[in-house]
Simulated assay, not measured.
Amino acid sequence: MKSDQWAPHVTVAAVVEQEGRFLVIEEHTSAGLRINQPAGHLEAGETLVDAVVRETLEETAHRFVPEALVGVYMTHFERPGVGVTYVRFTFCGKAREEAPGRTLDDGIVRAMWLTADELRACMARHRTPLVMKCVDDYLAGRRVPLDFIHTHSVAPVVRA
């Protein structure tokens, strides 16, 4: 693989709504303290669903049960000397019990439950514009069944 080959970063995010409030995190970023959905990068060997379940647990200590895909979003950021593209798969679902005694990922200050209006009131603190876009799409009823996503498994190569 060439070192100058373009490759997008694949991320996942969870929209979790409970009694009119959304589960979000407050995290340290290079731009300061920001608000985001539980989100993170797809890791090697994971399915998208596995990744969003893992990231939600790591960042909020809540077990997440995905129910549908809200949308797929692409964002491009220009950083000094390089552009970075993210493709984000956002899922919605239910939060189960909080895992007792579980510490949150490095950089995560806390998990919070905010209403859509509270999220709109602090948009300047959102990590990306996708935070509100995903909530708005969820509130608009956008849902794609999970079986829309297919993960093709390739058998490992056995070497003699």
Rank of each mutant, 00 (worst) to 15 (best):
Q18E: 13
K2I: 07
F91D: 03
L146N: 00
K94N: 07
P145A: 12
G101W: 01
A160E: 13
G81C: 10
R159V: 15
V131W: 01
H152W: 14
V24H: 01
E43K: 15
V82D: 06
P66E: 02
D147W: 11
F91K: 02
E78G: 10
A39W: 01
E97I: 03
M112R: 10
K133W: 02
Y138H: 14
E26P: 00
V84W: 11
H76R: 06
V53L: 06
V24T: 02
A61N: 04
P66Y: 03
H152D: 10
E17S: 12
P129Q: 07
L119E: 05
W113M: 09
T90R: 05
T90W: 03
Y73W: 04
K2A: 13
L104D: 04
E97Y: 06
R88D: 08
V144R: 14
H76D: 02
R63Y: 01
P38K: 11
H126F: 01
H41S: 13
D137S: 11
A68G: 04
A13N: 12
Q5V: 14
V24M: 00
I25H: 02
R34T: 09
L146R: 14
E118W: 08
L69S: 02
D136W: 02
R88V: 13
A140W: 10
L139T: 10
V82G: 07
H62P: 02
H76A: 01
A61C: 04
L146D: 08
A124Q: 12
